[in-house]
């Protein structure tokens, strides 16, 4: 009886621990995410803490996205006005938008 109690207790604790772990790790997904959308549809999701390059193949042209040292910005665009390049780095308050190519780059804060 006493032994069974302990087994029961241990297994309940184990399940609780697993559930807690799953809850915190899976739901949190901490870290900021760079979200690229073309004409409103999600095109790519990239972690801000991983240096990378992405050539966005949009409807009317291309935009080159760079993620470097925790900053994301567009370095090249096929459009004539280059406003997206001039906008600079993406922040939570400011998305980078390329109107001719219908591209938006936004920053999603991790929890």
């Amino acid at each position: 009886m006493k032994k069974n109690d302990i087994i029961l207790l241990c297994s309940v604790l184990l399940i609780a621990a697993i559930a807690f772990f799953m809850g915190t790790v899976l739901l949190d997904g901490s870290g900021d995410t760079v979200v690229v959308a073309v004409n409103g549809a999600e095109y790519a999701r990239l972690p801000l803490d991983e240096n990378t390059e992405l050539l966005i193949q949009a409807e009317n042209g291309t935009n080159k996205l760079i993620i470097k040292d925790g900053e994301a910005y567009i370095t090249e665009a096929s459009c004539p006005d280059k406003i997206c390049v001039k906008t600079g780095k993406v922040t939570e308050m400011r998305s980078v938008v390329c109107l001719p190519n219908k591209v938006t780059v936004t920053l999603e804060k991790g929890d």
Binding site: I15, A19, F20, G23, L27, N39, G40
Partner: peptide, 24 residues
């Protein structure tokens, strides 16, 4: 233990999700 099990689930059920729409 059962309360601690429910806690993450409860907050998950009520959790508001962020959505974004863009039109051009």
């Amino acid at each position: 233990i059962s309360l601690s099990l429910c806690l993450p689930l409860a907050s998950c059920g009520k959790r508001l999700k962020k959505y974004t729409s863009t039109y051009f």
